[in-house]
Simulated assay, not measured.
Amino acid sequence: MFTTVWTASPQLPSEGFTPNWSREGFWRQSLRQTVLLTGGGERVRIRLSHAYGTSPLRLAGASAATSGAPTRLTFEGGSGVEIPARGEAVSDAVPLAVTAGEPLTVTLYFEAATGPATFHAQAFTTSLRGEGDLLADVGGQGFDAVSESWYFLSAVEVDAGRTDGVALFGDSLTDGFGSTPGADRRWSDALARRTGRPVLNAGIGGNLLLNDSAWYGEKGVRRLRRDVLEQRGVDTLVVLIGLNDIGFSETDEQPTYKPAPVVEADELIAGYRELLRQARRGGLRVVGCTLLPFGGSNHWGEHAAKVSHEVDEWIRGSGEFDAVVDLHRVMADPADPDRLHPAYDFGDHLHPNDEGYEVMAEAVAVAL
């Protein structure tokens, strides 16, 4: 039985907030991406998402490696695959021993033009692009362009047979904004190290619970099924989302912060209840997290303060979650509980640094 041990939530091609290759796509080029696995096994397969494609995607070939020579991947026995618009493809399982905490490098070769690429905007690690077929390239010398996004690759599965996976569902706080790029210091990484369980990161920077965004993904209540419930081996959902719904209306007029309706606590609570309903139907245990303090950030204001306090009180006291982790209290400045502790602040009073993400992981590990 296969278990998902890494994920990246797909997004609509866009370039407005981070430079990337999603709109231009790929043609006669190889794409090399490295991901950190949170579970081990003897066989590996990958999932490729073409969720936002409008015409078929033709992949000429793929390979995977931990070290040394790459192993060729196949799709129903063939070297390549055609993925229909808005579809996905799963490779055949190949013998490749991997362990938790080990990086896996996946290389994709596109001979035909892909058109705009379904991608995950903020990877906080390096992806490489090179001209021609570089599937067998070991040292990477043929790759001459760098991006910090993931493209098409949406999941890695191994034959672990485990059913104790944990999915973290949220926005940039889950995606890892503020952590050191290339160091795997997101709180999903820290939680996997602390628990020894497969941990899936289903965060999208800027994501909203209640509204779709051209830049920051489909709304949480819609994408939960694809990004969590359809993953293999997950038994627990950890919810940390809603801060952007509250805070975008307090920000300046940056075009990426749209839509930015003024929301009330009861609207967000209805959204949380929809997540709970879907998760329970999928047989998952659900852990609710209070919102992190964000006083002094560009998301803060009188209305945001009121709604965030009301939402946190509901999460703490409603009894609707199977467990609650009060991240607001864990991460707060003792001298001003509406602000992040200075030792955990990345610098924008909104996102934690590496140390802060470790503290979040420790608190959630206790609840698990």
Rank of each mutant, 00 (worst) to 15 (best):
P95R: 01
T126W: 13
A93T: 08
T118N: 10
R86W: 12
S127Y: 03
A123R: 15
A121M: 11
T99G: 13
A117F: 02
P116G: 03
A97W: 01
Y109T: 03
G80E: 04
V90L: 15
E102H: 01
G130P: 01
A100Y: 06
G101Q: 09
F119K: 00
E111R: 14
P116S: 05
V98D: 01
V81I: 12
V106A: 02
T99P: 00
T126G: 04
A112P: 03
G115S: 11
A123W: 09
V81M: 08
A113L: 06
E82V: 15
G87M: 09
A112Y: 01
E76Q: 06
T105H: 07
V90A: 05
E102V: 01
A117R: 08
A121E: 13
A117V: 06
E82Q: 14
G115D: 09
S79Y: 00
A100M: 14
A89I: 11
D92L: 11
G87T: 12
A100Q: 06
A85Q: 10
A97Y: 02
V98L: 02
V106I: 15
P95L: 02
A100S: 14
S91F: 13
A93V: 05
E82W: 07
T105V: 09
A112M: 07
E82H: 04
A89G: 04
G87S: 05
E88A: 15
T99V: 13
A97S: 15
G77S: 00
R86G: 06
G115W: 12
E76I: 00
G78Y: 00
G115F: 12
P95A: 00
A93C: 08
S127D: 03
D92R: 07
A113Q: 12
E82M: 12
V90F: 14
A89P: 05
P95F: 02
E88M: 13
T105R: 09
